[in-house]
């Protein structure tokens, strides 16, 4: 396999990882909560997309906005009803709480959807250019992932809500004094995190088989992406995602695919120790 193919594989994977992690990163950065529910949100998004396609013949592109909005609602409620009550508590409390909620959601999904791997097959064929081969659905997923991540960036920069989220992230007390309803913003941020997870799940269902057993793996990827890129910003997640995609495809080529995950985690530990703010993170923001 030549180097071009490896790089393209890595970038395609990386774009998907960026989309997967950006919501997680936002919640971590703004709320200071490690959201263990994120993996289950992704799988839920994927399952909903799959069943809309499989049972009702709805194209994933059509169902994606609805799935994402539904997950926004779920995320908003989870934050508003549960996480908000302990949002200032130590890490252990919030992490354990979201883990407990994740166990409930995981169990519900396994009972209702079963753990069979499922995938939306669009059969778009493959594309070849300069000796590089790539399935079209994967390229399509990458474009969609990048578009969504870009859209989130735009919303965070330009909209009132986005500016409020950034303000709360910078200084909670000052944001309160400026008349921002912090609890509302927290719930919206958590909702946006879930929305991005749902959208990522919908894209993943078009590219890879999706099953409840993958929730742990998705969370792991989100950790690595956040730490490598830097917390709580869209560019951070994008850089981290692309970096992880490249690391995995390059190390998979040289050491064998079974080691690519290990290398990802080792790079993450290294970055944690050397530059905890991540590649593009700013000091004092963590």
């Amino acid at each position: 396999m030549d180097i071009g193919q490896i790089l393209v594989n890595g970038l395609v994977l990386g774009a998907l990882y960026a989309c997967l992690a950006v919501g997680f990163s936002l919640v971590w950065g703004v709320l200071n909560v490690i959201n263990m529910l994120h993996g289950s949100f992704i799988v839920l998004g994927g399952y909903l997309t799959f069943f809309a396609w499989h049972s009702f013949g709805i194209h994933p592109l059509v169902s994606l906005p609805f799935v994402a909005l539904l997950l926004f609602g779920i995320g908003y409620l989870v934050q508003y009803l549960f996480v908000n009550k302990v949002v200032t508590a130590p890490v252990l409390t919030t992490l354990t709480l979201t883990f407990g909620l994740d166990m409930i959601l995981y169990n519900i999904m396994t009972v209702f959807f079963s753990a069979t791997p499922r995938r939306v097959t669009l059969d778009l064929g493959t594309l070849s250019f300069f000796g590089i081969t790539m399935p079209v659905d994967r390229l399509f997923g990458m474009a969609l992932a990048l578009a969504l991540t870009g859209l989130l960036y735009y919303v965070m920069r330009k909209s009132r809500i986005g500016r409020a989220i950034v303000a709360v992230r910078m200084d909670r007390a000052a944001a309160t004094l400026m008349g921002i309803r912090v609890n509302h913003i927290y719930a919206i941020t958590f909702g946006v995190g879930a929305l991005m997870a749902g959208a990522a799940g919908a894209i993943f269902a078009m590219v890879f088989p999706i099953t409840t057993n993958l929730t742990g793996m998705y969370i792991g990827k989100a950790f690595v992406v956040c730490v490598i890129g830097g917390l709580g910003s869209v560019p951070g997640a994008l850089v981290g995602g692309l970096a992880l995609g490249l690391i995995e495809s390059i190390s998979g080529h040289f050491f064998g695919p079974q080691h690519s995950l290990t290398v990802g985690f080792l790079v993450m530990l290294f970055i944690l120790l050397v530059k905890p703010t991540g590649l593009v993170g700013k000091r004092g923001y963590e």
Binding site: T96, L97, F99, G100, D102, M103, I104
Partner: peptide
């Protein structure tokens, strides 16, 4: 058997809120 994980999750949530 089918719901043990969810029940454990509920125990955790209960613990966080009522037995901090």
């Amino acid at each position: 058997l089918d719901w043990n994980r969810a029940i454990l999750g509920m125990v955790i949530v209960f613990l966080i809120f009522f037995l901090p």
